[in-house]
Simulated assay, not measured.
Amino acid sequence: MIWLNSGSKVKTYSATSRSGRHVLKIEVEYPDAMSMAYDMEQIDKAKAEERPAPTSRKKAQPRGVEHQKPLMLPAPEED
């Protein structure tokens, strides 16, 4: 649902459909910057709600020899 602030006018719009994706582009003209800022905040909130929650990533293991587990070799035999 799209709501425009009072005084805002739809200047142009276009729609395209390609490969199952549908895009609507709307150009809105505002009487002042504050009205535009309010709409931008609302769009930002909507985008934040549609993003998936970030997943935690496992830390990469260092690859250097000093970070590897020691090899289990038998103790040298003494004569």
Rank of each mutant, 00 (worst) to 15 (best):
M1S: 11
W3H: 12
W3Y: 13
L4W: 01
N5A: 15
S6D: 15
G7E: 03
V10M: 09
V10H: 01
K11H: 05
Y13S: 10
S14D: 13
A15N: 03
A15E: 06
T16P: 00
S17E: 14
S17V: 10
S17G: 07
R18Q: 08
G20T: 07
G20S: 11
R21Y: 05
V23E: 13
V23D: 11
V23Q: 08
V23I: 07
L24H: 10
L24D: 07
K25T: 14
I26F: 01
Y30K: 07
P31L: 13
D32T: 13
A33R: 12
S35P: 07
S35E: 03
M36R: 15
Y38C: 04
D39L: 10
D39Y: 04
M40Y: 02
E41S: 10
I43W: 06
I43A: 15
D44L: 10
K45G: 05
K45M: 11
K47M: 11
A48G: 09
A48H: 12
A48T: 05
E50M: 14
E50Q: 14
E50I: 06
R51M: 11
A53Q: 08
T55W: 00
T55Y: 00
S56D: 10
K58A: 14
K58P: 08
K58R: 15
K58D: 05
K59N: 09
A60L: 12
A60H: 09
P62D: 02
P62R: 00
P62S: 00
R63N: 04
R63E: 09
R63I: 00
R63W: 04
V65D: 11
E66C: 03
H67A: 15
Q68Y: 01
K69W: 07
K69F: 04
M72C: 08
L73G: 03
L73N: 04
P74R: 10
P74S: 14
P74W: 07
A75I: 02
P76T: 01
P76G: 00
P76V: 00
P76W: 00
E77T: 13
E78D: 01
D79H: 02
